[in-house]
Write a protein that binds this DNA or RNA. Structure first.
Lengths: 138, 138
DNA sequence: TTTACAAATCGTAATGATTACTAACTAGTA
DNA sequence: TACTAGTTAGTAATCATTACGATTTGTAAA
């Protein structure tokens, strides 16, 4: 998504466009790390040294409201945010908590079949696979 | 699972068998409600009025360790525990947080496909579908 | 049965992520 | 340019969870 597109989405939904929001959105929406609030905060602090932790929380609430990120909570750690809202699987290492996204046509196909079987209108989904990653298996 | 089987599992894993543990396990393992620690606590309190919240937490850790329940964390609420450890989907209402389990051949197929395509050895899974349930849609 | 000891329990204190609050500030608009 | 509602920063409050320590209990060996 371009910055202009993002700005339109914010304005259309009644959110004001602020430098803080742009900085946070640019970082989070392009991140592959499924970052925590703390990680986002320390990243943004480098260029915007007075940004408040609270602003990160509020901006993440906004992104959730806009459907641009998904919040994922885990045992023993704080929330992480996934800007990939399409149907995909999260491969999560039980040891180091690293998350890798996995998408495929086969998964999307099977998933839409299952949703049909369930006879529901999904607002979202979360497909987690818990593993030990290559490094942690050693 | 019978109580005798449960007792064997505890003993075999080096856990002592206490009345508190039996009460908690009996309730949680037969529950369909995906209860929270608070719900478990108030349920057990009725017959065991001095049980500590801490004991609930510790017993849930034990059950997780034994692989008999799965912990599920959600935004804006405390952990919930699912005694169904087979491959299944959780249909979760975004509004009232009610959870309904869904099992089917299609789900098991999806799962084996994910495992094959990803080339991983899964230790567990969590398949969530977020919806508005019939009551909340009104 | 009795004893010994490690583990479990209870009650409470500490922790830490998240939320609430408020005064100062700012984007958007007339 | 001035107004207003929304936003920000900083801090305080909340609440689920974890840590701690004194007491109790289950288990196995004497």
């Amino acid at each position: 998504m371009t910055e202009d597109q993002l700005i339109s989405i914010l304005r259309d939904s009644g959110y004001k466009v602020t430098p803080q929001r742009l900085a946070i959105c640019n970082y989070v929406l392009s991140s592959k790390e499924h970052p925590t609030v703390e990680q986002i905060h320390s990243e943004i602090l480098e260029k915007n040294p007075t940004i408040s932790l609270n602003t990160i929380y509020q901006t993440m609430d906004m992104l959730i409201d806009l459907g641009l990120v998904q919040e994922m909570r885990f045992s023993g750690s704080s929330s992480r945010f996934d800007p990939n809202t399409s149907v995909h699987a999260n491969i999560i290492c039980q040891n180091c908590s690293k998350i890798r996204d996995f998408e495929s046509e086969g998964i999307r196909e099977l998933w839409s079949r299952i949703v049909m079987e369930m006879n529901v209108e999904p607002l979202g989904q979360r497909l987690d696979v818990y593993v030990l990653c290559d490094e942690c298996r050693k």
